[in-house]
Design a protein around this nucleic acid. Structure first.
Lengths: 348, 348
DNA sequence: CTGTTAGCGCTTTCAC
DNA sequence: GTGAAAGCGCTAACAG
């Protein structure tokens, strides 16, 4: 019922409690060096006034803002939202607030987001660079006076630490698995492949195919259902139709599945299907889809942990002057064998 | 190349540019009442120093923080992440930052999140209350000196505005659709139904069934695949097996589908299936799943718009003193007819 | 144990 | 057009 159109301040609390501001400050910061009675009394006043410290004022005093930023392409993408969820948990453990911002993979939006976050003086930053090569981004990042960790994609020519997935090895595993099944003509469906991760996956596919002396069949034309239909049907109607498809990204895998399903092309008998990146109903579809699973949750968790390590160690030296070389943490993927590649169907 | 272990300040810019702080302030706020030359010069200095205004200092001067908070159960849930994405777009249009926090539907976490957000003095708040009845939450919310809008679930006994989906009507539509198909024994599978939304959906189901003089068959036991299997098999083995299932939530719909698929129970021939809430591969599954679609994106957008309306109108009167009655914006759902209810399969 | 005081970086009168 | 100066709410010496 206290009518506060404005938040009560620390000095109001002090006045009300009949003590100095320092004492109140001590109380809200743990209550060290304050007598039990005073402590209790001040706490009561704080409670009754509904006082909550103003973070802006604290920040201004040079303290940490207790916030870290996370810049991702999209919050609606399960992979990134898992990262975000995990990172938030870590932030919370470290008594910090995670501020998530999205870029839609657009460099301009990315730069804007970054500036906003810097204005808010986040203590550190986790970022999935829209463009691994962008000099503009690199510039701002390198000059930002805070620890930064790159996620999912490294940033070229910097000493910025990064936590990524071993896309290359994952793709090799996928391709080899298909090869081990006996498939000879394995097509690789990649969406627009400008992204670092896609590049790596394609590289892995190539490597595995070459090692097995098999011909690479690459198609980068899939962007939606329609293009997938055209691509796959063309491939299948061609002289040497593929007997397996390795899809390098989630959406492509789904489009491919839909095409195959629509035209009653038997999977895996006529063509096998294996996708990079797991998705929610992959095991519910029939046939269930085999995939290379990425440790999304772990990537978010590990990167956030790493960031707080840097934060606790030495904010100054951690970045910018970049004395130490880029640390890169590479996480392993996992092959999930389901039916679409020719493996046994799962229990359910 | 500038070695800044600390951010440059406005007065550093002023000194460097040989002008007063006022002038610099004017420049970074649009450049009104500053001569063109000075403006250009100061801008150049700002650029070269990589200066970025400290939001904390601005906030302290009584300005808006240019941030709004969004408290949701989970960021990994597609429904809420869609809301978040939409809300973020609106925030961005209003030159603000959206800070998302999750509760896992836990009241304690919710209260903590709320406090953090208040400490950061967000200008306004969007919240999906973990518990529609919580007095503790109501208290903090009512006393918070900021505009607040409740999302997806209203908060009882308050004048807090809310943007919700018409769950009741949606459920009626769903149930009636099943009835129109000729099904007589329609079972309603609801997960744990403490949530407001689930309540409303069940209420809608009841209403529709009673209106048609059909018996209600409710089952609240489904929490995972196993329980779904038990529940559905029991129902089907019973004396009067249902000929249709209305599932009130996403996860339940999927579990039901998996059970039906696993036991080769023909859908919709043996039992039809209709779920509340759409999900990504609903149209890819076979049969494709008919659902009641919620306007997730719209709910996020509209609520954020409403919040900024309040913000621009009158922060003081908008909330707390609660002179005006609760505005409630109720959004309509949409029936998406796919195959599982007995309708014709979609084109693809 | 407790209070006084000086700013943190910025906006904003109010003069010039 | 421009600048000097007074704080915003808080913390951190530095006294007592």
């Amino acid at each position: 019922m206290t009518k506060k159109n404005t938040h009560p301040t620390l000095s109001q609390v002090a006045r009300e409690a009949g003590v100095g501001t320092t004492t109140v400050s001590r109380v809200i910061n743990g209550g060290e060096r304050v007598s039990p009675e005073t402590l209790a009394h001040v706490r009561r006043v704080i409670e009754s006034l509904g006082y909550m410290p103003n973070q802006a004022a604290r920040t201004l005093k040079g303290q940490r803002t207790k916030t870290i930023g996370l810049i991702i392409p999209s919050i609606a993408d399960p992979f990134f939202s898992s990262c975000a969820e995990a990172a938030q948990a870590i932030a919370r453990n470290n008594d910090s607030l995670l501020i998530v911002t999205t870029t839609q993979n657009d460099p301009r939006t990315e730069l804007d987001s970054l500036k906003v976050l810097i204005r808010h003086r986040v203590d550190g930053l986790l970022i999935v660079p829209a463009n691994s090569q962008s000099p503009a981004l690199r510039d701002v990042l390198v000059h930002a006076a805070m620890p930064i960790i790159t996620i999912d994609r490294p940033l070229a020519d910097t000493s910025i630490a990064s936590v990524v997935v071993d896309n290359y090895k994952g793709a090799i595993t996928a391709t080899k698995h298909l090869i081990d099944h006996g498939y000879k003509r394995i097509a690789c469906l990649t969406g627009e492949s400008a992204l670092y991760t896609l590049h790596e996956r394609i590289r892995g596919y190539r490597k595995a195919m070459e090692t097995a002396h098999l011909p690479c069949i690459l198609d980068a034309s899939v962007k939606d259902y329609k293009s997938a239909e055209y691509a796959i049907l063309s491939l299948l109607d061609g002289a040497n139709p593929p007997d397996a498809i390795f899809s390098t990204k989630n959406s492509t895998t789904i489009f491919a599945f839909e095409v195959l399903q629509r035209f009653n092309i038997r999977v895996p008998d006529t063509v096998a299907l294996l996708g990079f990146d797991d998705f929610e109903l992959a095991s519910t579809l029939r046939p269930s889809i085999s995939v290379i699973q990425q440790p999304a949750e772990e990537i978010g968790r590990r990167s956030a942990e790493l960031l707080f390590d840097l934060l606790l160690t030495d904010r100054k030296a951690a970045n910018a002057t970049g004395a130490r070389t880029a640390k890169r943490l590479t996480l392993e993927t996992r092959l999930i064998q389901r039916s679409s590649c020719g493996c046994t169907p799962p229990a359910i």
